[in-house]
Write a protein that binds this DNA or RNA. Sequence first.
DNA 1: GTTATGACTTCAC
DNA 2: CGTGAAGCCATAA
Length: 123
Amino acid sequence: MAIGRKQASKAQPIQGAMPQGDAAVAAICAVIRRIPKGWVATYGQVAAKAGLPRRARLVGQVLQHLDPASDVPWHRVVNAKGEVSWTLSRNGSDRLQQKLLEQEGIEFDARNRFDLERFRWLD
DNA sequence: GTTATGACTTCAC
DNA sequence: CGTGAAGCCATAA
């Protein structure tokens, strides 16, 4: 599949170039971009749709290395526990992600979690 | 080259 | 539904 321009800002290459890096990043980006508003997907789900069966972790790593200015709705990607990642240990971006999701209609509970089965993207 | 860590997942208890 | 252990892969030291 041709992403065309890949990413608007080309993001940042993950330190050099890994063998499938470019393809993986492109695929992951494409998949995440296909997540409808108001829905979320887990890393494993994105990875699977991107053609990376067991690379959930890679998805996370890619996202972390991704350019924040990209048009990729990374906030729609969460872990399998139905909770926002970044382990609430970062600069407070966790609130940002939660806020964005709430803005899209995701309802969080007191534990910063939501009903994953209810909001999971089913494509 | 090996060892340790991580925006993770899944199974078992 | 909680925590713990094993698994997978790339980056960093």
